[in-house]
């Protein structure tokens, strides 16, 4: 046990160091304007998409339920956060640097409230029915956001302008927020999955009846995973709104939900590293293939079908790539090489 703890400690250290290096490199590239505005924006988008994919993975991968309304939670979080910063930054109560973190929490909490309201009825159902009912709720949220009586809050289809950081004076600000949140979300969902709480959720996925018979409060844990995912999606929505500066309901439609789902499915349902990789690739790829934008969704759908047909568990399945283990392997190989060299 002592050995294991020591090993875990070493793993933490390696992960922290590698993350810090990645952060520093990207930050220098962005704030030093080595990356132009456009690609800096793509980096931030990658962080946001990773957050979304990892959060959906909590429900679709760990709990094993198909949710088709994730963009709805994003929408709610985006509008809640945007309205907050519009109010406090405009009247000068606080700067956006202070307001954004608060706005993210607000966005997350509002989305979580929606998660509870939707989750309580929806989670009584399973499989196909749950998928359809979340799809229904997602659509209701979007239709409502367009409705005239909510115009004061959403500005309807015209779109709502959102406070953003000045690109001229501080190009790295948005990246810092997005990266930190992303790192936190990855860590939290990893540790959650390996705790008694996560174990309960996985047990429900494996066999709900047996889980309940072993003392797992299935209703509670299903709702917990669902609401946690909704909260994180709300935070991501808040980030997204302040990144692009202009939001309207069509940015959070069914297709957006599907895009997030595709990231999770391709990466491997249940694998956080899979979600991270596929969210990164699927954000960069369309930017590289600009000329093919008309074919993007067509290509996605074909890939999706083929993956389901020939590798239903996705790229990584439930496997996690561990950076420290990779480092470990590399070092060992060097040691071995050095030894054979000596001999």
């Amino acid at each position: 046990m002592g050995k294991l703890k020591k090993k875990t400690g070493a793993y933490y250290l390696v992960n922290t160091v590698l993350t810090a290096i990645l952060f520093t490199v990207l930050f220098l590239l962005i704030s030093g304007r080595t990356l132009n505005n456009y690609w800096s924006g793509v980096v931030v988008l990658i962080c946001i998409n990773v957050i979304l994919a990892v959060s959906l993975n909590l429900v679709t991968g760990i709990l094993g339920q198909l949710v088709l309304g994730h963009a709805g939670f994003m929408l709610v979080g985006a509008y809640a956060a945007a309205n907050f910063t519009r109010a406090v930054v405009t009247n000068g109560t606080m700067s956006l640097y202070v307001a954004l973190p608060i706005a993210m929490v607000i966005g997350g909490l509002v989305a979580a409230v929606f998660g509870v309201v939707i989750g309580i009825p929806a989670l009584r159902l399973r499989g196909d029915y749950l998928a359809i009912i979340t799809l229904g709720f997602g659509e209701i949220i979007r239709v409502m956001a367009n409705a005239s009586f909510l115009q004061p809050v959403t500005n309807g289809a015209m779109g709502l302008s959102v406070k953003t950081f000045s690109n001229r004076t501080d190009p790295g600000a948005m990246f810092v927020f997005a990266f930190v949140v992303m790192a936190l979300v990855i860590v939290i969902s990893y540790t959650f999955g390996r705790s008694r709480h996560g174990r309960s959720v996985i047990a429900i996925r494996e066999d709900e009846i047996a889980a309940e018979a072993m003392g797992v409060n299935t209703t509670y844990y299903k709702l917990f995973a669902f609401v946690l995912a909704a909260f994180i999606a709300g935070v991501a929505g808040a980030l997204y709104a302040h990144h692009i500066g202009m939001i309207d309901p069509s940015k959070f439609d069914f297709n957006r939900s599907v895009e997030i789902l595709i990231m999770v499915v391709l990466g491997g349902m249940g694998s956080i590293s899979g979600s991270v990789i596929s969210a990164t690739v699927l954000t960069i790829l369309p930017e590289l293939l600009r000329g093919f934008s008309d074919y993007r969704m067509l290509l996605y759908s074909i890939i999706l079908i083929c993956v389901m047909l020939f590798r239903p568990s996705g790229l990584l399945g439930r496997y996690e790539i561990s950076l420290p283990k990779l480092v470990d392997k590399l070092l060992h190989r060097k040691e071995k090489a050095a030894k054979t060299g000596e001999a």
């Binding site: 198909l66 499989g127 196909d128 789902l261 349902m269 074909i302 999706l304 079908i305 389901m308």
Partner: peptide, 10 residues
């Protein structure tokens, strides 16, 4: 079942 559903969606 989840694979079937995702395929149908695809």
């Amino acid at each position: 079942r989840i694979s079937l559903l995702i395929t149908a969606l695809g």
